Simulated assay, not measured.
Amino acid sequence: MKILVILPNWLGDALMATPALEALCSVYPDAELTLVGSYVSIEALKYHPRCVRHYVDETKKGGNRFANTYRFAKELGVHDMAITFRNQVHSSLLLFWSGTPLTAGRRSWHSRLLLTHSINPSHPSHLVEQYRDISQSLSPIPLVIGNLNLHIPPHRYNRPMLGINPGATYGSAKRWYPEKFAEVARAYSDKYEIILFGGPNEVGMANDIESRLNGIKVTNLAGKTSIQELCSFIGGLDLFITNDSGPMHVAAAYQVPTVAIFGPTRHAETSQWMNEKSYIVRHEMKCAPCMKRECPLGHHECMKSIEPEEVIEAVKNLTYNTLKQGRPQ
Rank of each mutant, 00 (worst) to 15 (best):
M1E: 05
K2Y: 07
V5K: 09
I6Y: 06
I6R: 08
P8K: 12
N9A: 05
G12D: 02
M16S: 00
A17S: 12
T18W: 04
P19F: 01
L24T: 07
L24S: 08
S26L: 12
Y28E: 05
E32V: 01
L33I: 01
L33H: 09
T34P: 11
L35P: 07
V36R: 00
V36A: 07
V40Q: 11
I42D: 10
L45A: 02
Y47G: 03
P49L: 10
C51P: 11
C51W: 12
V52Y: 09
T59K: 08
K61R: 15
R65D: 07
A67G: 13
Y70P: 06
Y70V: 08
E75D: 14
H79A: 13
H79K: 03
M81K: 15
A82I: 06
A82C: 04
T84Y: 00
R86S: 04
Q88W: 11
Q88P: 00
S91C: 12
S92T: 12
L94S: 09
L102I: 15
T103G: 05
A104G: 00
G105W: 02
R106F: 15
H110E: 14
S111I: 01
S111A: 11
R112K: 15
L113N: 09
H117I: 05
H126C: 00
V128A: 13
Q130F: 09
Y131I: 08
D133A: 01
D133S: 09
Q136S: 01
L143F: 04
L143E: 06
I145C: 07
N147Q: 15
L148M: 11
H151W: 15
P153Q: 02
H155G: 00
H155P: 09
H155R: 12
Y157E: 00
R159K: 13
G163R: 00
I164C: 09
P166C: 03
P166F: 03
G167M: 07
G171Q: 04
E183L: 13
A185W: 04
A185Q: 06
E193L: 09
I195S: 13
F197S: 06
F197A: 04
N201P: 13
V203P: 10
A206Y: 06
N207K: 15
D208Q: 13
I209S: 03
I216Y: 01
A222S: 13
G223I: 05
K224A: 05
K224M: 12
S232G: 07
I234K: 10
I234T: 05
G235Y: 01
F240D: 10
T242A: 01
N243I: 11
S245F: 02
G246M: 06
G246N: 05
M248H: 06
M248P: 02
H249F: 05
V250N: 00
A252W: 02
A260R: 00
F262A: 04
P264V: 04
T265H: 01
R266G: 06
H267D: 12
A268C: 00
E269V: 00
M274L: 15
N275P: 00
N275R: 11
E276F: 10
K277S: 14
Y279E: 15
I280W: 03
V281D: 02
H283F: 04
C287N: 09
A288T: 08
A288N: 07
P289T: 02
P289I: 03
P289E: 06
P296Y: 07
L297T: 11
G298Y: 04
G298T: 03
H300S: 13
E301S: 14
M303T: 03
K304H: 14
S305C: 13
E307P: 07
P308Y: 04
E310L: 08
N317G: 15
Y320W: 14
K324E: 15
G326N: 14
